[in-house]
Amino acid sequence: MRLSLATRGGMAAPIARRLPPQVLDTDRLPDDAVRELRRLVAAASADPGGAHPAPPARDAMTYTITVDDGPRSATLVSSDTSMSPAFAALLDHVQRHLG
């Protein structure tokens, strides 16, 4: 499985859009971590939250997580101030493993 994270908007929006997407390749992860990631992807797919930042937000970021998992692929989009807890959990997991 391969996940890529693209970030748009924010206080530094012109810079964010020029940074390459961050890619997480699960080949390097232990099996239990991959299982956990699949569970998080399924939960976030079922309920990603709002695709756009809540209207009063300023400098909020929007995240696009693209999942390539064999024949299945999915694109999940959500934003600061509108993401569901499930999307937040997936984003948190992806960002921690990218670091």
């Binding site: 530094a12 009063p56 937000a57 300023r58 400098d59 909020a60 600061d80 101030t81």
Partner: peptide
């Protein structure tokens, strides 16, 4: 957040 490259106003508070 994790390694969050931003600051924002969410309509009520600053983050």
């Amino acid at each position: 957040g994790n390694r969050y490259n931003n600051a924002f106003w969410d309509g009520r508070q600053m983050v």
